[in-house]
Amino acid sequence: MSEGGQAMTEMTAGAAPPRDRNAGRMRQLSWWERYINIIGPLVMIIALSVGMAVSQPRFFAFDNLMIILQDAAIYMVLGMAMTIVITGKGIDLSIGAVAVLAALVMAILIKDHGWGPYPAMGVALVIGLACGTLNGLVITQFRVPDLLATLAMDQIYRGIGLVLAAGLVLARFPEPIPFLGRGRIADLIPTAAIVGLIALAAGFVLYRYTWLGRYAIAIGGNREAAQLTGINIDRQKVYHYALMGFCAAIAGILLTGRLNAIQATAGMGFALHTIAAVVVGGTALFGGRGTMFGTLVGVLLLAMVTNALVMLRFQFFWQLVASGVIIIASIGFYAWVQRRQGTGGRGDD
């Protein structure tokens, strides 16, 4: 460094040691304040567990816990990609239709055309990737808002699925499809849950240690700043939706294996359930902030609630009521945390 930099360092150091001026101004946050974003759903999980321990100890039977994991698995895969999509200020309502379309094509190739399971699964993944990429292109090239674009694409994909397999139930698939969907590794742990956890772990790395996640945060946090930095926003958004479509196809394969059957009307609630789990997990619905760990917690919480309600013999509509209440309680809780930290309205966007 030349003399200018030197002089400058001395000047500022002489005037006021920069390092010390703010020393001691940061109060050490207690551990629960640091993790307050995930504490809400964690507390709900604990409360639910205590309640179930009292009323239905069967809830904690190993087998039931594995069923919960099994139920959560598909949403782990979907939630991973949705966390990135939502962080980048997007949303994808078409994932149920994409999952089913990919699964239907795979099923038809296997049942009607004698394809082996692996090439058929490969085709399913390519279809998911293509549908997701198409979503991204519609949003970025035609400037259709994410919500409306994916709502319309949902209709299109659902319609194509119905044309392909209206009224059909395609069933009984060769391994490894049932093994992936409902098998157990070592007769203990659901394979699907392992797939889901691997997806979330990969998502964690993508979110924290790659351009994909970093630029998603930048786009969702401050679109103009992202643009000024030279980030190609359109391209990044296409990547987000392509990843989402790819994960939807994986979910479609898991769903097919789970029931060992697939029909064109399956997967109807995928999008809303996934978005709920992601938002309950602390990802900001309007972008810029999120965590993969929170998404895992959100997915598990919703799966546990559903399981508990079934076990307590509540009717299906009570499950809907319960997930609605949880979503509102979580979002209210985050809003409260933000107000408390005094950072609510500042800065974002």
Binding site: W211, R214, I217, N222
Partner: peptide, 30 residues
């Protein structure tokens, strides 16, 4: 108007778009 991403900490803002990379098995990680 500064152009910071308020949800990112300072270092990640400073290097936004010019992130230093570490390769692990040839894959670039931030």
């Amino acid at each position: 108007n500064l152009g910071l991403v308020d949800t990112l900490p300072a270092p990640q803002n400073v290097f936004l778009g010019i992130e230093p990379i570490r390769r692990i098995l040839g894959i670039p990680f931030l």
